[in-house]
């Protein structure tokens, strides 16, 4: 004859608390991340999925007519619309001009201002101030400074015998002007990142290199620069992404002109969506921009992995 289980033991087993420590921690964890997660789902993932669907349709916002067109919007942009490739060229030119200039300037400023010294805090503030300045005010002020003959920039150039161009009315110069003013506005952010990275490098490495007889340039090239590589990668990725998404400067300073010389992808998307109300086509362009930025980021990460291997 077998032994019957103790009734107390059975009751305890069946009444084991559902809210175990593990579960409680899991619930707490989900509760902590839920505000961000909900925001991510509603304001990022949801619209992203919606844009994919919109890009497969021809949707005129005003007439409320929607027709499924498959990949026609993508085909139109990539193979039929000459404006698209002009816009891509402009965007690449903008990024190719802005990213190296921004990074080189940020690094130079960071090296100059990374060590304690007289006036360092003041100059850091001066170079960082444009980052927190209103983009609208910044663009409007520069628009005045960059006027033709009467502009302050050309007046200063005239003092040294240079006849400056009509900056915002000549296509090539307009692009240069927009790039440079954007660099001045944003360089402070990258400067701060580089300063933080430089200050994190132990001074011992530099001192050891000096004892070995290394020059300043050799120390920078063989010690500092390699140790800055992770920060450089991050800066390159965020600056490249930012340069492909630039809109406010273009909108406020040139409106994509003159002669479409500064018509970049983000502004072109805005024009299609909010001036022509072609939501389907604009969504396809937005997806193309997403793929371009994603691809550039992946390529940069792969190059970094290859470099550190």
């Amino acid at each position: 004859m077998g032994t019957l289980p103790d009734s107390d033991t059975t009751a305890r087993a069946s009444r084991a608390p559902w809210l175990t420590l593990r579960r409680r921690e899991a619930i707490e964890g989900w509760l902590f991340v839920s505000p961000t997660l909900i925001g991510f789902l509603i304001f990022f993932l949801g619209p992203l999925i919606a844009v994919v669907f919109y890009s497969l349709s021809e949707w005129n916002l005003l007439s409320q007519k929607t027709t499924y067109v498959g990949l026609a919007n993508y085909a139109d942009a990539l193979t039929e619309n000459p404006d698209f490739w002009h816009v891509i060229r402009n965007s690449v030119f903008f990024a190719a001009g802005l990213v190296p200039m921004n990074m080189a300037l940020a690094l130079a400023l960071a090296i100059s201002l990374s060590r304690p010294g007289k006036g360092v805090v003041f100059f850091r503030t001066v170079f960082f101030a444009p980052v927190i300045t209103s983009a609208v005010a910044w663009a409007i002020v520069w628009k005045f400074l960059l006027q033709g003959e009467a502009g302050a920039v050309n007046q200063m150039l005239a003092q040294v015998g240079i006849d400056g161009p009509n900056w915002l009315r000549e296509p090539n110069w307009a692009m240069v002007a927009v790039i440079v003013t954007r660099v001045i506005k944003m360089v402070g952010l990258n400067m701060i990142l580089y300063i933080a990275a430089l200050q994190a490098i132990p001074r011992d490495y530099e001192q050891a290199a000096r004892l070995e007889g290394a020059s300043g340039w050799q120390i920078f090239r063989m010690v500092t620069w390699p140790l800055l590589a992770p920060t450089t990668l991050i800066i390159m990725v965020i600056t490249t992404i930012g340069s492909f998404k630039v809109f406010d400067h273009i909108y406020l300073m040139t409106g994509g002109g003159p002669e479409n010389g500064t018509l970049v992808l983000a502004y072109y998307i805005y024009e299609q969506a909010f001036e022509f109300f072609n939501i389907g086509y604009a969504s396809a362009l937005a997806m193309i921009m997403f793929v371009i930025v994603l691809s550039l980021t992946i390529v940069q990460l792969l190059l970094r992995q290859k470099g550190s291997a």
Partner: peptide, 16 residues
């Protein structure tokens, strides 16, 4: 009109 304005604008930039 919006499309016409957008198409005209760069050509008038060249005119000016």
């Amino acid at each position: 009109s919006p499309q016409i304005d957008a198409a005209m604008k760069p050509r008038f930039d060249a005119f000016w």
